[in-house]
């Protein structure tokens, strides 16, 4: 592992930790965007160029913006006065620490992990496109369907309630 990889990983993890621990929600969302960028940089160093660019396009360009919009629409842009943690936060921290310990122990002691690194695989855009249109065409179609359904659902959920009650009132 190169120094640059380790640095990127440290930045990513630090940004993720601050995204989960800062008091101001907008700062959390911005730290989350930094963390996503770091993960994209990790993908680029793992020779997955297409996924790295898609990560930035989807997560930084769309999901971070969506989260920011939701923060402003729910008027939670200011840091709250009272506690930001749930009542059982100590148990939560303990469980997540245990999860990390277990995963780390498993990763470090597993015999299934190959000892030497294989040469970098090639995943050109052409290969990815061919695979998407032949082997993975069914998942692709299903994803298209899921996205359409999610979009319609999100629009219906977020629709103004007044119009809904109006129509209900007209019916009754």
């Amino acid at each position: 592992m190169s120094i640059f990889f380790i640095l990127t990983a440290i930045v990513t993890l630090f940004a993720a930790a601050s995204a989960m621990s800062l008091r101001n929600l907008v700062h959390c969302a911005l730290a989350l965007a930094v963390s996503f960028t770091g993960i994209a940089a990790l993908y680029l160093q793992l020779d997955a160029q297409f996924v790295g660019f898609a990560e930035i396009l989807v997560y930084v360009g769309a999901i971070a913006i969506l989260i920011v919009f939701a923060i402003l629409l729910t008027r939670s842009g200011e840091a709250p006065e009272n506690s930001v943690l749930t009542s059982g936060w100590m148990a939560g921290i303990a469980i997540s620490a245990m999860v990390f310990t277990l995963l780390g122990w498993a990763v470090l002691n597993s015999s299934a992990i190959p000892k030497e690194n294989p040469p970098a695989p090639v995943a050109t855009v052409k290969n990815v496109g061919d695979a998407l249109m032949t082997k993975f065409v069914l998942p692709l179609e299903i994803i298209g369907l899921v996205l359409t359904a999610a979009m319609i659902g999100a629009v219906i959920i977020a629709l103004k309630e007044s119009s809904k009650s109006e129509t209900a009132g007209r019916e009754s």
């Binding site: 621990s21 749930t86 939560g92 997540s96 620490a97 990390f100 995963l103 780390g104 992990i113």
Partner: peptide
């Protein structure tokens, strides 16, 4: 190895995300 490093990073990321999701 490099694979173990990646897996450790992702385990830590998962733990951070989990801790945030259950405590905030």
């Amino acid at each position: 190895t490099a694979l173990q490093g990646c897996l450790l990073i992702s385990a830590l990321l998962f733990a951070i995300g989990f801790a945030g999701a259950v405590t905030r």
